[in-house]
Amino acid sequence: MKLNGKEIKNKNIKTLMDIIVLYNYDIKNIAILVNDHVVKKKQWKSYRLSENDEIEIIGFVGGG
C-alpha cells in the first residue's frame, strides 16, 4: 500500500488507526483519504486496509 505516495510495507498495519499510531500522527487536525475518498474519523479504527490501498494524510499548513 501507499502512504502519501510512498510504498509502505508492514504486516502490523490492518486499519487506518494502525497507521496513525505507527507513524505517530496527531489525530486532531488531519483528514484521511483512502483511494481518493475521505474516511470519516469515527471509521478510522474499523476501516480495514487492503494491499493496494492508497492512503493520503492531509492537514493544514500556512496559506493565504
Binding site: N4, G5, N24, K28, I58, G59, F60, G62, G63
Partner: peptide, 18 residues
C-alpha cells in the same frame, strides 16, 4: 485566518498550525 491544505508526512516534526 486562512490556511491551506497539504499532505502531512509521517516523519515531519514541523509545527502544527492548529
Amino acid at each position: 485566518l486562512t490556511v491551506a491544505v497539504r499532505r502531512i508526512n509521517p516523519a515531519s516534526k514541523v509545527e502544527n498550525i492548529m
